[in-house]
Amino acid sequence: MRLSGSLGYLSSVIVLGSLTVPAFAAPYDFVPAPQTDLNRIYRIDRITGEVSSCQYGLQEGTVGVTLCFGSGEGAGPQAPGEYGLVASRHEREGGVFRVNYRTGDMSICYVFDEKVVCTPQANPSTQGAPATAPAATPSVRPGTGASPQRP
C-alpha cells in the first residue's frame, strides 16, 4: 500500500514538473543565414531582441574555430518584447529579419565589420505608405539583399 502511495506522489511531481517546463524555456532562438555557401547562424534573445552570430572558420593545424560576432549598431537590446528571427528564401542573403511578434516591427540584421548590425526597426502598418529603398551607395551591391559588401 505504501508503494502505491509513493508512486502516486511521484506521478504528481512528474506531471507538475512537466507543466513548469515552458517557464524555464531557453531565452534564445537560432536561425541560419539563408546564403547557401555561408555557414553562419544567428542568435536572438527573445525578450530583448539582441542579435549575435557565429560561424565556422578554418585554422591550420586544428579542427577549426568558432568565429562569433557580437552585437553592433542597432543589434543590441531593444524595448522588451517577443522577438524572433526569420530568414528569407533568397539564396545569396547573408542577413536575417528581426521581428517583434507583439508590435509587428521588423529590421534586417547582418554581419558587417566583425559585428552584427541591424537597420532601424520599422512597421509597415504604422508608416502608412510602402517604404522606399534608399539610393544605392558604393558599399552596397544590388541584388545581394541586405548584406553590404566591401568594395
Rank of each mutant, 00 (worst) to 15 (best):
Y28P: 01
V15I: 13
P148G: 00
I47F: 10
S6E: 07
R102D: 11
P27F: 13
V65Q: 12
P142C: 00
R150G: 08
T126C: 03
S11K: 07
C118F: 08
T103L: 04
A87M: 05
A75C: 03
T66W: 15
S88Y: 09
S18I: 09
R46L: 12
Q78P: 10
Y83H: 02
Y110Q: 13
P77L: 08
T132P: 02
R141D: 09
P138R: 08
P142G: 01
P142Q: 01
G94I: 04
I47G: 05
C109N: 00
D45C: 02
L85R: 02
L16K: 04
L38Y: 08
Q55M: 04
R40K: 02
S18W: 08
Q78R: 12
P34H: 01
V15T: 12
Q78Y: 13
I108H: 15
G84Q: 10
T20F: 15
P142L: 01
A135C: 06
T36K: 14
T48N: 06
V111R: 01
P130R: 11
R141T: 14
A87S: 11
R98C: 03
R46H: 12
R2T: 06
L19P: 05
L7P: 05
Q121H: 08
N100D: 01
I14A: 06
D45A: 02
V51A: 04
R2D: 07
A23T: 13
G70F: 08
E50G: 06
I14Y: 06
R89A: 07
T103D: 03
T66M: 15
C118S: 09
P34R: 00
L7R: 09
Q78E: 13
G128K: 01
R102S: 11
T20D: 12
R141L: 10
L19A: 10
Y110H: 14
T66Y: 13
F97Y: 13
V51D: 04
G61Q: 00
S11A: 13
G76V: 00
P32F: 02
Q121W: 08
A25H: 02
A75H: 02
L38V: 09
G49E: 08
T144A: 10
T126Q: 07
S12E: 11
G72R: 01
T144K: 11
I47M: 09
S11W: 10
F97H: 10
I108P: 09
V111M: 03
A33K: 09
T119H: 08
V65E: 15
R98I: 04
T62W: 01
A79G: 11
Q59I: 11
